[in-house]
Simulated scan of single mutants.
Amino acid sequence: MEGETVDDGSAPSKREPIRRCLATGARRPREELIRFVLGPDATPVPDLAAKLPGRGMWLSADAGSIKTALDRKLFAKAARKAVTPVPDLAARVEHLLVRRCVELLSLARRAGEAVCGFEKVRAALSSGSVNGDGGVLIQASDGAADGRGKLSALTRGDIPVVALLTADEIGEAFGRDASVHAVVMPGGLGRAFLLEAGRLKGFRGTDPM
């Protein structure tokens, strides 16, 4: 059902990469949207990995689209049945996206593909080993502007910068209380992190990426 706002729950196909947002009608690659299915209690359940069984309903990855879907009862219209509203649905999706970002960063750290701390990040960026093919500079949204600016300058605009996680959230991925700066080396984990960060951006304001 290419381009539709719902799907029948079958396995994804390479021929069906596009879905349409229930709220806005925008057609986007499925990895940029959020899939929802109805749970046993008829509440919309976020399916970030797009793997849960059931009829899928797609929304743009931002709080406004979720609010519109709830206010206009679009889940019920798409499912063609009564749906139990979830007032804090956008907050739940944001929390799940943060968890996915932290988990991916932790995986990259355990695989030896990520480091944190100002000096280690500066050394990685200065070495030329980080590039735009999955490499990413991560800066805490609540970190000092001076340090963030110095490291961002080293990217020369060629490496994505994500400033959506807090210092505590970045620190959690590295097994420490807090960390303001981190970098992920080029590769699949970096690309996966960027996809999730792209979706998280719709819930955490306008910090640069």
Rank of each mutant, 00 (worst) to 15 (best):
G3K: 09
S10V: 02
A11F: 09
S13A: 14
R15P: 00
R15I: 07
P17H: 05
R19K: 14
R20H: 05
A26Q: 13
P29I: 06
E32L: 12
L33C: 11
I34D: 02
V37K: 06
L38R: 06
D41E: 14
D41S: 13
P44K: 02
P44L: 06
A49L: 14
A50L: 03
K51H: 08
W58K: 04
D62C: 13
A63V: 13
S65C: 12
I66T: 11
T68A: 15
A69V: 12
L70Q: 15
K73L: 08
F75S: 07
A76S: 15
A76W: 02
K77E: 15
A78V: 10
A79K: 08
R80S: 13
R80H: 12
A82L: 09
V86W: 03
R92K: 13
V93T: 10
R100G: 02
V102F: 04
E103Y: 01
L107D: 14
L107M: 10
E113R: 15
R122N: 09
A123S: 12
S127R: 02
S129I: 04
V130D: 03
G132D: 07
G135F: 06
G135N: 06
Q139E: 12
S141N: 01
S141Q: 05
G143D: 09
A144D: 15
D146S: 15
D146N: 11
T155H: 03
G157H: 06
I159N: 06
L165D: 00
T166F: 03
D168P: 00
E169Y: 01
A178G: 01
V183F: 08
M185P: 00
G187F: 07
L189C: 09
G190V: 10
G190H: 11
E196Q: 14
G198T: 10
R199W: 04
K201I: 00
G202T: 08
G202C: 07
G202D: 08
F203V: 11
F203T: 09
T206P: 00
T206E: 14
M209S: 12
